[in-house]
Amino acid sequence: MSAHASDKFVYHEPGLQHQFDDMKQQEESVSIGMWMFLVQEIMFFGGLFTAYLVFRSRYPLAFAEASNHLDAFWGGLNTLVLIVSSLTMALTVYYAQRGNRNMQVIMILLTMFFGTVFLGVKVIEYTDKYNSGLVPVTGWNKKIPETAGTEHAASKDPTFALPLIETRAEAASAADDHKKHPNPKGEFQWNYGTHVVDYGLSKEKETGKPYLTASERIGYFSNGVFDPDKYRDKIRMFYYIYFVMTGLHALHMIVGLGLMSWLLWTAWRGYYSAEYYAPVEMSGLYWHFVDIVWIFLFPLLYLLGRHFLAGH
């Protein structure tokens, strides 16, 4: 700390900014700053997790029902993809610490590759939701007219000019056409039955004890009779939360990819050395944070109530 007192026009190390005395102080500051940023990110996502918690505890069966239609295969694959990208990111920092430029660049490229794969899978999943009428916003689903010939509907729609990716789900539903439900206004639809709530009601009959929560008893029934429309609304709420959470996460991934591109450029230019690699380390923290969010999103969104599927 005695560096203050001496001449302030000492030789500046590369990357040392004027307000700091030495690299140690700068690295400490940048690292604390990054962690404070992550703290605020945790609270930012925390608001969404609170919303999830509240509604999951209110409508557990509708949430399980809705979640069962998410493709846990894609979700699980994406988890693995992100974990691999986290490994490559950790190795990027590892090589940066050793001043190994070439391995650094390779690892950044790998990280970016896996990040892109993640987003690609997300596009496949979102497209499936679009085709199945599971986007909670009216008009944002594939418009399927009342009559047959549904295949051309999307290409005629000027608001959606991109070619659609043929997913497993779409391929399967194209195979047996009767599964395509008309959806002329592109509304949110639920055509996958009420298995979970049926299970709950049968359990109630079996044991004589309440299985549904008090909110569910209000939320799914009209005048004591099960109301599929009200049930659908709760499922719609799950998809709303799903889209907001994964959408915000995907946005963070896109920002992360931007960060990686910048890192790639600077690493390629040989900007970093064993003495100065703080930007690599900080970008790494961000990337791992985004990974951690997904580690929680995967079980909470894709796997809840999976056992209802297996049980039947």
Partner: peptide, 23 residues
Amino acid sequence: YVGIFVILVAGTILTYVTAQWDL
């Protein structure tokens, strides 16, 4: 690093498998 990675993958598989059980 690879060891941690293996733990993470194992965790992912474990969480997927246990989710199928009706605990």
